Amino acid sequence: PIMDGSSAAFVEAIDQVGLKRLDRGRRYLRVKKTVRVDTGSAWCELQPYNGIHFDITIDFDTPLIGRQQFASDMTPDVFRSDLSRARTFGNVKDVEQLWKMGFALGSSLENSVAIADDKVLNPEGTRWSDEFARHKALDAVGDLSLAGLPILGLYRSYKGGHKMNHAILVKLFEDKDAFEIVEAPAFREAGHAETVGLAAAAFGPDVS
């Protein structure tokens, strides 16, 4: 389901249901050494990092988008305020070609940012001047979640996309020395620490 082209509807749905905190620490996949994928001028890599960080750069041959970058530690607040509402986008010429092939038949101004002649066709414009880079970062967050566990590491990409986001996970799992599974301390009502930003020593090896 494309909703409005962003993840905002899913965030709202989770808010309506609420969260249940478990009595066990969350498990993470920690990057131990750098892995990288290169495809022409595009590349992506995962690096060791004490936290969860995304650094996404796009570079489109159109003045409307050009080179944009989104870089931030990824916390629930950052995801909610800075990424969740970033919509997918595309050039009208490309969408028309997809329509002829029977694809993207539901695409409209209600669920994507449409570009034509270096202009945004949506009457409301973009939600941020760099919404394009933010959406690519949103894609990366979703794609890397397919690892099965939140990744402790820094993910960088240049001219990346879904295919490269998948490729970096394949590359990571090919090297058993490049990662390990760790567990954060269990939550405590008083004096608990936030998971992101904890020193590496605060995580223990997963023994389950």
Rank of each mutant, 00 (worst) to 15 (best):
I2F: 09
F10S: 12
V11M: 08
L19P: 00
L19G: 05
R21W: 00
L22C: 09
T34M: 07
R36S: 12
V37G: 10
T39M: 14
E45M: 12
N50Q: 14
F54H: 08
F54E: 10
D55G: 09
I56T: 12
I56M: 08
D61W: 10
P63Y: 03
R67K: 14
Q69Y: 09
A71L: 06
D73C: 07
M74W: 04
F79K: 08
R85I: 11
R87Q: 07
T88N: 02
V95G: 09
Q97D: 13
L98R: 15
M101R: 13
G106L: 03
G106F: 06
G106Q: 08
E110R: 13
I115S: 03
I115P: 01
K119G: 00
V120N: 06
S129D: 15
E131S: 02
K136R: 11
L138P: 04
L138M: 07
D139V: 03
G142E: 00
D143A: 00
S145G: 08
S145M: 04
L146E: 10
P150T: 07
G160V: 06
H162D: 01
I168N: 12
V170G: 12
E174H: 11
D175A: 02
D177W: 02
A178M: 01
I181S: 04
P185Y: 09
A186P: 10
F187P: 07
R188N: 14
T195E: 11
G197T: 00
G197A: 02
A199I: 04
A200N: 15
A201Y: 09
G204V: 14
